[in-house]
Design a protein around this nucleic acid. Sequence first.
DNA 1: GCTAACCGATAAATCGATTTTTCGTTCTTG
DNA 2: CAAGAACGAAAAATCGATTTATCGGTTAGC
Lengths: 357, 357
Amino acid sequence: MAQQEAPQRRPSIHDVASHAGVSAATVSKVLSGVTTVKPENAQRVLDAVELLGYRVDPLASDMRRAKRRIIGAIMPEFESEFFGQMVSELEGLAEQRGYTLVAASSRESEQREKEILARMHDWRVAGVVLAPVRNEHGPAAAFMKANGMTGVLIDRVLADDAFDTVSADSAAASAEVARALIVQGHRHILVVGLGQQAATVRARLEGFRNTALELVPDIRIDVVLCESDVEPLRMLLRDYFSKREAGADRPTAVYSLFLKGTLVALSEFRRRGWHCPNDISLVGFDDAEWMQVTWPAIAAVVQPVHEIAANAMEVLFRRIEGEGGPPRARLEPCKVLMRESVGSPGSVPHSGGGDRQ
Amino acid sequence: MAQQEAPQRRPSIHDVASHAGVSAATVSKVLSGVTTVKPENAQRVLDAVELLGYRVDPLASDMRRAKRRIIGAIMPEFESEFFGQMVSELEGLAEQRGYTLVAASSRESEQREKEILARMHDWRVAGVVLAPVRNEHGPAAAFMKANGMTGVLIDRVLADDAFDTVSADSAAASAEVARALIVQGHRHILVVGLGQQAATVRARLEGFRNTALELVPDIRIDVVLCESDVEPLRMLLRDYFSKREAGADRPTAVYSLFLKGTLVALSEFRRRGWHCPNDISLVGFDDAEWMQVTWPAIAAVVQPVHEIAANAMEVLFRRIEGEGGPPRARLEPCKVLMRESVGSPGSVPHSGGGDRQ
DNA sequence: GCTAACCGATAAATCGATTTTTCGTTCTTG
DNA sequence: CAAGAACGAAAAATCGATTTATCGGTTAGC
C-alpha cells in the first residue's frame, strides 16, 4: 500500500474542514470554544484535527486582530544574570497567557532601543516591556507614547506620566546598606555609580546618603560617578585611590551602585593588593551566583527579579485588556545580603598599600 | 482648522496606493525593488510612503511565503553569560538579514524543548538554532527531523546525521588544560562533570585524559560525574574530599568541565578553607567576567561565542536558501586562560584541612 | 395557517501584504 | 497597415485564519 509522501505542507483549517465535512468557519468556532456547534459536528472536527495533527497558525490567526498575541521585551543587554533571569521570567509569563515573547537587546544604546521599538511596532505587538538604557524619559518612551503603544517600563525607572513602571526599591535597599555599614563602624564610605541612569542612580545615592547622614551627621561620603561608560570608571577609581595613599584619608568601605562597578572595584582592590574586608569593605548593588562562592563572598543587594517580572506582566496585560486610569509606579523591595566582604574598619590594620601589577 | 485625530490605525499598503494614485501591487513592487515601474510613479509611491510614514507589516508580508522571516533560538537557559552572549549575537545576526529572532529558554528540560519547538513550527520559522539540553539525539532534534524543519545544533553537540552542528572544540581545549596542569607538575587531578550531556562531556573528558596519559602514563585522574542535576554534585564532591582528608591522597588540581561545576568546586574549597592555588589548583570550562577580578583569578576555558554564533547563522541561512549536501560538524577553537588559581603543587604546604562552616 | 424567532451552519468579507493574470497602450516589423 | 511583441499597471487570487452576513429549515406564537 502506497504510503502518502510529502507531509511538506502543513494542514490548514480548510483541510480540517473538508475532512470533517464542515466549513472552515465551523472549525474555527469549535477550536475557539463557541458553543453553538452541534456536538456531533464538533466531535468530527476534533477527530479531523487529531488525525491531521492540525495546529492553528498563530501568524494567520493574528492577522485579523489589531493587537497581536506578541509581547516585545527590550533589555539593555542579555549578558548579565539580572536581565537573563528577567527575560526568562517574562518569556514564561507571556507563554502562560498564550503570547509569544520577542526579546531584543538594545546593547546599551538609545538609538538601537528606538529602532527595535519601531520594529516591534511594525509587528503590532500587543505590548512592550521596556528596560530603558537610561531612564523613563528617553526617545524610546517618547516613541511609544507618540504611537499609542501599550507598555511597561522596568528597572532603570522611577515613575512616568505615560506608562506604568515597575522597579526595585533601590532607595530602601541603599538605606539598608547604609545602616549596615554604619553599624559596622564605617565613617568614610565611597559610593561608585554610573551617572547615565540619572533617576535610578539618584534614588540609590540619595537613599544611601540620607539614611547615613541621619544616623551619623558627620559621616564622610565620597562619590565617584562616571557619566558615560564603564571603562572610564576604572581610571576614575584608580585616580581616586592614588590620591588617598595615606591610610587615614582612605575610605573604609565601598558601595557600588551597579554590578559592573562592583567588578571594577574588586579589580582595583586586586591591583592594590587589598583584601576584603580587612583592608576595605565592599557592598554591591545586584547579586550574582559567583558572589557567594568566592573568597571573600561579596555582600550584595538582591533585586526581586521574579516580582518585577510578574508585576510588569500583570499590569501590562491589564492595560492590553483596556484597563484605564493613571499610570502607576511600583517599587518592589530588595533583599540585602551582608556577606564576608563587609567587616568592621580597623579591626585589622591596612595591609601595606602601593600599586601592584 | 481641524487637526485630523486618531492616527490609531497604521497606514496599509492600500492607503499608500490611493495617496500615490496607483494600485497596491505597484506599491509593493516599488518597495521590493522591481524595476518595471515608471520612475514617475515610483517617486510618487516613495513620497506617499514618506508622507504617511508607511512601514511594511512583516506579519502580513510573511503570510504568503512558506518560510517566514523568523528564526527561532532555543537555549537551555538565559541566566549564564555564555547563553546570554549567544542570544545577543544571534539576535544581531538575524536582524542583519532582515529576520526576527524569537528566543526561548528550555530551562534544561527536554520536554519543554520539544514544546517550544512545536510552537516554533506553528510559526513556520525559516530555521532554528537549537542548543539542546542534553545532546544531538534528543526528542527535539527528532521532532525537527520528522517535520522537515531547517536547523542548526550548537554547543552541547558533536556531530549529527541530519543537522549541521557548531560547537566549541572542547577536546582540544581540554588537552591544552591537561598539558598546562602537567607542566605545572600536577600528577593527581580530579575532573568534575555532568554526565547528562553525554557526548560533550565525553569529548572534554577524553580530550583531557588522552593527552594527560600520553604525557604522563602513570598520572592519576579521578572523575566525579553527576548524572542528573547540579545539586547532587555538591554532595558527591563533599564525599569525595571527605574520603581524602589525608593530604597524600588528595588531588592537587581540579578541572571542572562546566561552569556550575566550577562554582560548586569553589564553594567546596571555601567550606574546607582551602585556597587556590596553594592548597589546590582549579581550572574551569567556561569563562565569566568575574573570574578575572576575584582573588585568585580563576583559570578558565573561553568558548568562542562569537564564532559559534556566526558560523551557526551562516550555515543555517545557507540551508534556508536551499543548499544541499551532507550535514557538517564544525568545531571552533577555544582559548585557555591560565590564571592565578593554577600553581605548582606542593610549592606551599597544604594549609590544615578540616571542615569549616 | 402564516409569520416570526431561532438554530446551526455556510458563504463571503476581512486582515495586509505578494504574486500571478489580465488588459490596455505603444512600439516594432513584415 | 495589420499582426505581434513589449511594456506598465490594474485586477484578482493567494496565504490561513476570524468574523459578519446570509440562508435554509424548524419550531413557536397568534
